[in-house]
Amino acid sequence: MSEEQYRDGARLVADIGGTNARFALERGPGWIEETETLACADYPRFQDAARAYLERHGAAGAPVRHAVIAIANPVEGDYVKMTNHRWEFSLQAARTELGLVTLLAVNDFAALAMALPQLAASELVQVGGSAPALDGVIGLVGAGTGLGVAGLLPTNGRWTVLQSEGGHVAFSPADRREQEILAYCWQRWDHVSAERLVSGPGLALIHEALAARAGSKIAALEPADIVEHALLGTDPLCIETLDTFCGMLGTVAANLAVTLCARGGIYIGGGVVPRLGEWFARSSFRARFENKGRFSSFASRIPCFVIHAPYPALGGAAAMLAEHLEAQQTECAIQQPTMEVRHGHALSSQ
């Protein structure tokens, strides 16, 4: 690589979801390597997973001093408690235990949003719409263990991330079938969020609800099995489940598009949709996306892009860490005391 290595050693970057934790080392700006995916369930704590990665990969030369974790969770204050996994920890305690100088936590979809301008055309597949406005607001949505939402706003030649917990808005049914699915969920929960259905676990819930709607008694299926049967065309209920899911995602994406006026496009990440390939483009997603009543013409012009980059959030998290450290250095320089000599005494002034 041609990039200069960081003078104070490689930086640890991590993308932590409800199922998997992806770790890597950034040795210079944009120079990310030695990526490894660990199952969250295999480690009692975040610190255990991070230590296991560092023990295997380490860092040539100086030890790791700075780290960033993009986590599928709201990030507020020092204490982190994951929504879709059992890990909970103090950032300060974890930083001390791992021997770090810096441990920055950011929302995982904020990190993914930060990576969007860096993605190559080969890492994206467009589904409908026209060309994006280069100075337009960008929306991001992605279904995995949960439902992530974020925005990216152009400000003075730079991008500003709009963090969001939009996956937890109330689910909005768009037809009678979805109304019946929602009624089925209401038997179990008072509040049914979009994430409850538009996510990996949501696929299993949709399948269960559709079976109940049809009066069928069938065995529960894992989300991966539902997707496999649907893509192979071997199970009508799985096909209906996946297409219903795609339609629901179309509603979520369109709501985000009109909320943000996302003329820069809607990007789709997460673990589910990129696995669907061309099936997704043929699904009910785009028709639902454009079905916005008086704003149908507006929605029809907005392009949607499926992200196919392998670990895009790592690059975004690394960029956010770089900005954080740069801001710290600037603040320290501003606050650096200057020495003046007055009447033979050294005085410090700030």
Rank of each mutant, 00 (worst) to 15 (best):
E165G: 14
V141R: 03
I69H: 00
Y311W: 10
E195F: 00
G270C: 05
L119D: 09
D175Q: 06
I307C: 06
T37P: 04
L91M: 12
V149L: 06
Y184N: 15
T330V: 09
M339E: 13
C261M: 05
L124W: 01
P303C: 09
E278P: 08
T259G: 10
W279R: 01
E33L: 11
A52G: 00
V341W: 10
I307S: 03
A49R: 07
L210T: 09
L221D: 10
G58H: 05
L314S: 12
A72Y: 00
A14I: 13
P236S: 08
A52N: 06
P310F: 02
F285I: 05
C332A: 14
A143K: 01
A346S: 14
R86C: 08
F280W: 06
I268P: 03
T83S: 12
R188I: 11
G136M: 09
P337G: 07
G264V: 08
V125K: 11
L205K: 07
A317T: 04
T19H: 09
F46D: 03
P117Y: 01
S296M: 08
Q336H: 15
V64I: 15
F280D: 00
V141M: 07
N291Q: 15
E76H: 00
S284E: 08
A194Q: 15
M82E: 05
I138H: 01
A313H: 02
S296P: 11
G344N: 13
P303K: 01
G28L: 12
F285P: 06
S122C: 08
Q336Y: 13
R342E: 13
E33W: 04
A230V: 08
C238L: 04
G128V: 06
V106N: 07
C238T: 06
G30S: 10
A21T: 12
Y6V: 00
A14K: 00
Q47W: 02
L260D: 08
S283N: 09
G136V: 11
M339P: 01
W279T: 00
L12F: 13
S300R: 15
P74S: 00
G30I: 09
F23C: 04
I16F: 03
V64Q: 06
A327W: 02
G61I: 07
V80H: 01
S349Y: 15
A105C: 14
E3S: 14
G144E: 04
R294D: 14
V13W: 04
N73M: 07
A52C: 13
G129W: 01
S300I: 06
L347M: 13
A322H: 08
A318S: 15
Q163T: 14
G250C: 09
E290C: 14
E331K: 06
R294H: 12
P274H: 03
A262T: 07
I218D: 12
I266Q: 03
L147E: 02
L134S: 15
A214L: 14
A170M: 07
T19V: 13
R95Y: 09
F289P: 06
N20D: 10
K292Y: 09
G146I: 03
A105P: 14
V306Q: 02
L140T: 05
S284K: 03
E240K: 07
C40W: 02
E228P: 05
G61W: 05
A67L: 08
A67C: 10
R275I: 00
A333K: 12
R275W: 01
E326V: 01
R65M: 10
L205W: 04
E97L: 14
L232D: 13
S130F: 02
